[in-house]
Each structure stands twice: as structure tokens, then as C-alpha cells.
Amino acid sequence: MRRKSGRPALLIVDMLNMLDFDAGDALLKQAMPAAAKIASLKRRFKNAGAPVIYANDNFGQWHADFTEIVKICSGEGSRGAPIARKLLPEPDDFYILKPKQSAFHSTPLAVLLEHCGSRKVVITGISTDVCVAATAIDAHMRDLTVHVLADCVAAPTRARTVRALGMLHESIGSSLAASRSIRP
């Protein structure tokens, strides 16, 4: 039985990223419009006092902390710097570093959501067909209400995003709302 959704939490998945892989240029092109929408949505969540949580890959940097990851991804020489700079975390934002695709796998995210009183997650980020999808499926398995925002996610191609969004809607019933329709 699903519990009632409380305060929604905004999850920003892997938007702090060096994009230092073969499809990095393609993903940057697809993710820039999503980053602008996420920045606007983040402001709305913060103004409403709703939690904002960065769920970010640790890129195998087991000795790095979140601050170091932010610095690396937003620094000179990082292909993903334009996105990272647009979405820089603020001191009152929450964060978790994830070792695998899902933001729930081997992280304290479920405990953090409980602490925040959140039974609804609004998922944004990259890549729609990998980390976003894995996180959405894991959220669903935890009986959370899941919204994956169609205008706040990206994959290296638009076709991959469309396929992943369709799968999430059909398989777990994820809402695919646009960011403007979400109320923090």
C-alpha cells in the first residue's frame, strides 16, 4: 500500500559531471536546455522550503568529497563546466555521492528522504536512460511517488530520452510532467 506523499524532494542526478566520455559532447548539447529548467525549478523548491538533493556520481574518486567533485566538474577543462556552474550547490542543499547508477544503491538517500519528510521525488538529470531511470525505478520500489520531468532530463540523443521516458511511464507509472506544472 502506498503511503501518502508528503513534501516533495527535488533530486538532481549527475548534473555535476565532467562529461569526459565519447558521448560527452552530444550529452552536453542535450543537457543544456534541461539545466536551465532545473535551475528555475530549484529556485522554486528553495523558495517553498522544499528539499533539494544532489545525487551525484563519485566517478570512482573514492577519496574525494562532494566539494571536490563540484570543483572538478565546474573547473576549467571540464566539458560539463557550463552545466555545473549553472547548477552549483548552495550550502543548504543536500547531497549524496553514489557509486553506481541508482541514487539509492549503497547511499543514504532513503534515510535522507525520510528525514526530509518526502514521500514524493521529482527526478531531474542525466542520463535519462541510465542513472535517471535506475533512480526512478528504485524510488518506485520504495513506494515513493515518482515524477520524472520530461524537460529536465537528457541523454546523448533525444530518441534515447523519449524511449526511457516512455518506459518509465508504462512500467512504473511515472508522471512525465513538465517542470512548470510541478508544485513544490
Results as ranks from 00 to 15, higher is better:
Ala139Val: 04
Arg142Met: 09
Ala154Phe: 07
His140Cys: 10
Thr135His: 06
Val148His: 07
Met141Phe: 13
Ala150His: 08
Ala159Tyr: 13
Leu149Trp: 01
Arg163Met: 10
Ala164Ile: 07
Asp143His: 15
Asp151Cys: 03
Ala154Pro: 03
Ala150Ile: 02
Pro156Thr: 02
Val148Asp: 04
His147Trp: 07
Cys152Gln: 02
Leu165Tyr: 01
Leu165Asn: 01
His147Ser: 04
Cys152Gly: 05
Val153Glu: 02
Thr157Trp: 14
Ile137Thr: 14
Val148Trp: 03
Ala164His: 06
Cys152Glu: 02
Ala159Trp: 13
Val148Met: 04
Ala159Leu: 11
Arg160Glu: 13
Pro156Lys: 12
Val146Ala: 07
His140Pro: 00
Thr157Ser: 14
Ala136Asp: 06
Thr161Ala: 10
Met141Glu: 14
Val148Ser: 05
Ala139Gln: 08
His140Val: 00
Thr157Ala: 06
Ala154Glu: 11
Leu165Gln: 04
Met141Ser: 11
Thr157Leu: 09
Pro156Glu: 12
Ala136Gln: 07
Ala150Leu: 05
Arg142Ala: 07
Thr161Ile: 05
Thr145Asp: 12
Val148Thr: 03
Asp151Glu: 06
Asp138Phe: 12
Ala139Phe: 05
Arg160Ile: 00
Ala150Gly: 06
Ala164Gln: 08
Pro156Cys: 00
Leu144Asn: 07
Arg163Trp: 12
Met141Leu: 12
Val148Leu: 05
Pro156Val: 00
Leu149Tyr: 04
Ala159Ser: 12
